[in-house]
C-alpha cells in the first residue's frame, strides 16, 4: 500500500509517494503554472513512473497547499500548516520552530513536543519576503534565481532594503544599481530584509527560541543567502534544512494519508 501527498503551491506543485513504512518511494516537483490541474496530473504521473507502481496501489491521497481542493481524487485536504509541521517532524525530529517560505506566503509554526501545531503566523498583507519577492529581485539584479543564494558572499555592509513592497523593493534595487552599489551588497540587503520580516513571524509564535530546534522548509530554504541572514537575525548557529525542503508539505500530506488509512 502506498500513500500520496500532493502540495499545490502558487509557484510549484510537489508530490511525494511513501510506502507503509513511511519510506519515500518517489517525489516530483514541477512549476504549477497557470493550469494547476495539468501540474497535478504531471506530478502524479511522475511519482508513479519513478516508482513503477500503478494508481490502484495508492491507498489514500491527501492534498495540501493553496490549490488543495483542486485535486479531484483526493481522500482529504489538509492545510499546508499542518502538513509542513507533520513533514518536518519526520525528517528533522524534535523541530519546535519551523519557518516555511513558499511562493506567495511565509509562515512560522511553533510545534509542540508531541509534534502538534501550537501556533502559527503567516504573512497577511502582501507577498514580500516570499518566493515571488525573490523572483522579482533576481529579475532586477539580472541573475538566475538559483544563483541568488550565493550572490551575497563577501558582502559586509549593513544595507537593508527599506521597502518590503515587492514592486517598490524592485525599484529600490534598480536605484541602488544605478548608484553603483555592488550586487552582493544589494543581495545581502535583500536577504536581511526577508530575515527581519521572518524574525517577526517567529517571535509572534514563540517568544523564547533559545534552545529550540529551528528548521526551514519551502523552496526559499534552498537559498543559502536567506538562510544565513535568518541565522544572524535569529542569533542561532543552526537552522536545519531538510534534503528536499520544497517537498516537506507533500511529505506531510502523504504521512497524514497513511495515518488516516491506518
Amino acid at each position: 500500500m502506498y500513500f500520496l501527498g500532493i502540495d499545490i503551491g502558487s509557484l510549484s506543485c510537489d508530490a511525494v509517494l511513501i510506502d507503509e513504512a513511511k519510506n519515500v518511494v518517489s517525489s516530483s516537483v514541477v512549476p504549477t503554472g497557470v493550469r494547476n490541474l495539468e501540474a497535478i496530473a504531471r506530478v502524479t504521473k511522475d511519482v508513479l513512473e519513478q516508482s513503477g507502481i500503478s494508481e490502484g496501489d495508492i491507498a489514500a491521497i491527501i492534498s495540501t497547499g493553496y490549490g488543495r481542493t483542486r485535486v479531484e481524487n483526493r481522500d482529504g485536504a489538509v492545510t499546508e500548516i499542518t502538513c509542513h509541521a507533520k513533514g518536518i517532524q519526520e525528517v528533522i525530529p524534535g523541530t519546535r520552530v519551523l519557518i516555511d517560505i513558499g511562493g506567495q506566503d511565509s509562515k512560522a509554526i511553533h510545534i509542540g513536543e508531541n509534534g502538534n501545531v501550537l501556533d502559527f503566523a503567516m504573512n497577511d498583507k502582501c507577498a514580500a519576503g516570499t518566493g515571488r519577492f525573490l523572483e522579482a529581485m533576481a529579475r532586477a539584479l539580472e541573475v538566475d534565481i538559483l544563483d541568488l543564494g550565493d550572490l551575497d558572499r563577501g558582502a559586509e555592509s549593513d544595507l537593508v532594503l527599506s521597502s518590503m513592497c515587492t514592486v517598490f523593493a524592485e525599484s529600490e534595487v534598480v536605484s541602488l544599481i544605478a548608484n553603483g552599489t555592488e550586487q552582493r551588497e544589494i543581495a545581502r540587503g535583500m536577504n536581511r530584509a526577508i530575515a527581519s520580516r521572518t524574525f517577526s513571524l517567529v517571535k509572534r509564535v514563540a517568544r523564547e527560541i533559545d534552545g529550540l530546534t529551528i528548521s526551514m522548509s519551502g523552496g526559499v530554504a534552498l537559498n543559502s543567502g536567506v538562510v544565513r541572514a535568518l541565522r544572524e537575525s535569529l542569533k542561532t548557529d543552526t537552522i536545519h534544512i531538510p534534503e528536499k525542503p520544497d517537498t516537506i508539505g507533500a511529505l506531510g500530506a502523504a504521512l497524514i494519508a497513511r495515518e488516516r488509512k491506518a
Binding site: 493553496y66 489538509v78 492545510t79 499546508e80 500548516i81 499542518t82 506566503d105 502538534n116 501545531v117 501550537l118 501556533d119 502559527f120 503566523a121 503567516m122 497577511d124 498583507k125 509572534r204
Partner: peptide, 28 residues
C-alpha cells in the same frame, strides 16, 4: 488566530487566505 483583515473594506481581504487560516486554526 490573529488575522490582519479589514472588516469594512472588502478590497483588503482575500477570501482564500482567510479560508486557509481558519482551516489551519481548527486543525490546530
Amino acid at each position: 488566530l490573529n488575522l490582519e483583515i479589514d472588516c469594512v473594506d472588502s478590497r483588503n481581504l482575500a477570501e482564500g487566505q482567510i479560508h486557509t487560516r481558519f482551516e489551519a486554526f481548527t486543525e490546530m
